[in-house]
């Protein structure tokens, strides 16, 4: 497997928060969505991959190189958006910021920068400090894209961004992924983003990776089933997460498995409904989870 990111035994503590120890492998050509509540460690993880924060322990390999040893070489090939990266330079105009950032990258593409600035209706002469939250997000996105990176690390790239620009960003990100040689790791709260872009979902909870799975696996795993009958032994089954009556229905995270067993026991599945992502997250993240 060709890995874009490989994290091993990563630990980062600060204040009262502890991230990890965690391991994560991201295959090249894939889009990984980091999901989790506010404060679950998504931004910390992204910043640690970017070496904006130094880990207490563990290793981070990006595009086959150790970020500690080859920081400059690796960062040339990464586009990063998030963490208020440009706040220190907020007195510059958007064009001024681009000039500054452009110097960091040998691959900087000024024409592509102009194209994106127009595409997202950004006023190039505006001081970054005076830009709205959404415009700042768009500027960060454009600056992350304009040097044609191989890997994008994005922290809620479309938060506060207008709907049309959000859709364009998703289109641009799909286009970015087109040749199968590029990779995206992104933190997000938006269902639409997960649906249209992500191949894998990585679920963070309180600094730990709670689960990681292929997005469409959800369809095979989680479902609400309406049944003709529910024998007692299923009521204590750990694969049954919720039971409701009239009409009899259960929620399961092992749909394919349970489907076969129910059929063997002559129980009819009257209707199947897949769960929405946020419903699944709620089940997985509930404190008394029975998995």
């Amino acid at each position: 497997m060709n890995l874009a990111v490989e994290i091993q035994s990563l630990v980062k503590t600060y204040n009262n928060f502890k991230l990890g120890p965690l391991d994560l492998k991201v295959e090249k050509g894939m889009v990984i969505g980091l999901l989790g509540s506010n404060g679950s460690g998504k931004s910390t993880l992204l910043q640690t991959i970017m070496k904006l924060r130094n880990p207490d322990n563990g290793s981070v390999q990006v595009l086959g190189m150790d970020i500690n040893e080859y920081e400059v070489e690796v960062k040339e090939r990464i586009g990063f958006a998030g963490a208020g990266l440009y706040e220190a330079f907020k007195q510059l105009t958007v064009d001024g910021l681009a000039e500054l950032v452009g110097h960091w990258y040998t691959n900087w593409d000024q024409d592509y920068y102009h194209l994106l600035i127009n595409r997202y209706n950004i006023n190039r002469k505006e001081k970054f400090a005076h830009c709205s939250m959404g415009t700042k997000k768009k500027v960060e996105f454009v600056l992350a894209m304009a040097h044609h990176p191989e890997l994008l690390i994005l922290d809620e790239p479309t938060a506060n961004v207008d709907l049309i620009s959000q859709q364009r960003m998703r289109e641009d990100l799909s286009q970015f992924m087109e040749d199968g040689q590029h990779t995206i790791v992104m933190a997000t709260h938006l269902q639409e983003e997960v649906k249209q872009l992500c191949d894998y979902i990585c679920l963070l909870d309180d600094g730990e990776i709670k689960d990681m799975f292929e997005k469409d696996e959800i369809q095979n795993r989680w479902a609400r089933l309406w049944l003709s009958d529910l024998p007692d032994h299923f009521k204590d089954d750990i694969r049954v997460w919720q039971i409701e009556e009239s009409p009899t229905q259960i929620v399961t995270n092992k749909f394919s498995e349970l489907e076969k067993e129910l059929q063997q026991q002559q129980i009819e599945i009257n209707q199947v409904k897949r769960l929405e992502l946020h419903e699944i997250l709620e089940y997985i993240l509930q404190p008394s989870s029975n998995s």
Partner: peptide
């Protein structure tokens, strides 16, 4: 359409 473009349109993963 390419695998990525179709995934985008249908909201499924490229694996699918």
């Amino acid at each position: 359409p390419s695998i990525r473009a179709l995934s985008h349109d249908l909201s499924c993963s490229v694996i699918t």
